[in-house]
Simulated assay, not measured.
Amino acid sequence: MTSDDLLLIHTGTIIEDDPLTLGQLCRACGTHADWVISLVEEGIIEPDGRELRLWRFSGVNLVRVRSALRLQRDLGVNLAGIGLALDLMDELENLRTQLKIAGHVQEHQV
C-alpha cells in the first residue's frame, strides 16, 4: 500500500498490509509531523518503534489520527479532550460489539 493509495481511504475497515512511516501517516491525513508527535506524547496513538525515525503506525492509528483531526477541526477539542473522546468512542464500539454477540448467542439458544 502506497501513501497515494491511503489518500483514497475515507471510511470503512482498513486492511493492514504494511505499517506506515511518520511521513506516510502525515501525508495520508494531511497533517504535520509535529501534530502527530503531540498525539503520541499524549498517548492518543502508539507507534511501533522506540526512536522517531523507526516509528511505524498501524491502520488503527491512521483511523485515530483522522478522527482526532475531525474533533479538533470541527469541534475545537484540545489534545486531552481528543484522547478522552477517542477512548469513549472505542469503548462504545466495544459495547456495541458485545451486544451484537450477546444477541446472536440468545438467538441460537431459543
Rank of each mutant, 00 (worst) to 15 (best):
25 L>M: 07
23 G>Q: 15
15 I>V: 13
47 P>G: 09
38 S>P: 02
100 K>I: 04
60 V>D: 13
19 P>R: 04
65 V>K: 00
34 D>L: 12
36 V>H: 00
78 N>G: 12
14 I>K: 02
47 P>D: 12
44 I>H: 01
59 G>R: 04
63 V>M: 09
71 L>I: 06
24 Q>T: 06
23 G>R: 15
53 R>L: 09
67 S>A: 13
14 I>A: 07
10 H>C: 06
99 L>P: 00
11 T>G: 06
97 T>Y: 10
19 P>Q: 06
76 G>Q: 11
15 I>Y: 15
51 E>R: 15
40 V>D: 04
44 I>F: 04
68 A>F: 00
64 R>T: 04
82 I>V: 14
54 L>S: 08
65 V>H: 00
83 G>Q: 05
28 A>Q: 00
7 L>D: 10
16 E>H: 11
45 I>F: 01
35 W>P: 01
81 G>Y: 02
43 G>V: 07
73 R>I: 07
62 L>Y: 00
46 E>R: 13
46 E>T: 12
14 I>H: 05
31 T>H: 04
85 A>C: 14
33 A>Q: 15
13 T>F: 13
22 L>A: 10
63 V>N: 02
62 L>V: 03
39 L>M: 11
8 L>S: 12
82 I>E: 00
66 R>T: 04
50 R>H: 11
35 W>K: 06
40 V>M: 05
52 L>A: 07
88 L>Q: 09
30 G>I: 06
63 V>W: 02
83 G>T: 03
33 A>R: 14
96 R>E: 15
78 N>H: 13
49 G>D: 04
86 L>K: 01
19 P>C: 07
16 E>C: 11
17 D>M: 07
37 I>E: 14
12 G>I: 05
73 R>F: 07
99 L>K: 10
75 L>H: 15
84 L>N: 02
92 L>S: 10
30 G>M: 09
15 I>L: 14
16 E>I: 09
47 P>E: 10
69 L>I: 13
59 G>F: 10
92 L>K: 08
40 V>W: 03
30 G>H: 14
82 I>D: 00
18 D>M: 10
64 R>Y: 06
79 L>C: 04
83 G>V: 02
83 G>D: 03
64 R>W: 05
42 E>H: 14
53 R>Q: 11
61 N>H: 07
72 Q>M: 08
18 D>F: 12
35 W>M: 10
11 T>A: 10
59 G>C: 11
48 D>C: 07
56 R>M: 09
71 L>Q: 01
26 C>L: 13
58 S>C: 07
42 E>A: 15
93 E>N: 12
59 G>S: 12
72 Q>L: 06
78 N>F: 14
78 N>A: 09
75 L>K: 09
12 G>Q: 08
22 L>P: 01
22 L>R: 10
26 C>Q: 04
20 L>A: 00
30 G>L: 10
79 L>R: 03
